[in-house]
């Protein structure tokens, strides 16, 4: 128990809280700069405010999910470190896997408080930082060149002499398609989970994720229909969060049927 009190000590809260505060300041600076640049470029202020409102609303439920990750990891790693990892750079599914693998390699068997030592913790913390830093490394050393190349390709006139950001742009279709690919991969994995998770065509896997996705999609469809029928543009800012909330509420009842 002594190790847990050290992992929850004021020093660790101060260290992790300080880094999180620094990142919050960075977010404010980037947000304010973008807002001012948008105003100077003549972008409608009300549209920018809609983006901020929609994004803030959108983020609430996933953030509560991430908070649960902090709680889950706090039993073995204390609270400050998971708080830092999941506020900055980390992602719920990565952090747990890396922490577990790191715990095994330092010889404490798995991620549990019973075998945790100071050395094991600092090694796990280092590995969690090191394993998931590659996006940051690439964006530091190649972000500018990559972004400039993308911008140049978007602005390069095509055979018809049109800039690709114009009506004939494939960029938008490509972005939408990439997102469809991303969503489809996850939804297809839920289908695969039901059908073959416990052996090919056993149909005995967990059906809850697919059911939740379908309910969220149906709720979203209702929101979209209302928005179109009533021309309620304001609904756009809340439709995703609302659909998620409906689906997650239904999950509570569906889980009882399992």
């Amino acid at each position: 128990m002594e190790i847990l009190s050290k992992l929850n000590s004021p020093f660790l809260y101060l260290l992790c809280g300080g880094i999180i505060l620094f990142v919050a300041v960075i977010c404010v600076v980037f947000g304010v700069r973008a807002y001012r640049a948008g105003k100077a470029l003549g972008i409608d202020v009300s549209r920018m405010k809609r983006v901020i409102a929609a994004s803030a609303t959108f983020a609430v439920l996933p953030s509560v999910g991430i908070l649960l990750g902090v709680i889950a990891l706090s039993g073995s790693l204390g609270t400050p470190w998971p708080w830092l990892r999941l506020s900055v750079i980390g992602a719920l599914h990565y952090e747990t896997q890396v922490a577990e693998a790191a715990a095994e390699s330092v010889g404490i068997g798995g991620l549990s408080l019973s075998g945790m030592t100071g050395e094991a913790f600092s090694t796990i913390a280092l590995l969690m930082s090191f394993c998931i830093m590659w996006g940051m490394v690439l964006v530091i050393f190649n972000g500018k060149a990559y972004s400039n190349r993308l911008s140049a390709s978007a602005l390069k006139p095509d055979a018809a002499g049109q800039g690709k950001t114009g009506s004939a742009s494939f960029g938008d279709s490509a972005m939408t398609a990439m997102f469809i690919g991303l969503v489809s991969a996850y939804i297809a994995s839920y289908i695969g989970q039901i059908v073959s998770e416990n052996g090919l065509f056993t149909f005995s896997g967990n059906w809850l994720p697919l059911a939740v996705a379908v309910i969220a999609a149906l709720a979203m469809l209702v929101f979209l229909k209302i928005r179109e029928a009533k021309n309620a543009e304001w609904l756009d800012s809340f439709s995703v969060a609302g659909s998620m909330l409906i689906a997650m509420t239904c999950t509570i009842f569906l889980a009882k049927l399992m």
């Binding site: 439920l61 996933p62 509560v64 999910g65 997102f179 969503v183 996850y186 939804i187 839920y190 809850l208 994720p209 697919l210 939740v212 996705a213 379908v214 309910i215 969220a216 999609a217 709720a219 979203m220 439709s239 995703v240 659909s243 998620m244 689906a247 997650m248 999950t251």
Partner: peptide, 10 residues
């Protein structure tokens, strides 16, 4: 099931 809810809506 936050992620399935998010991807379903999207």
């Amino acid at each position: 099931n936050v992620v399935p809810a998010l991807f379903g809506a999207m």
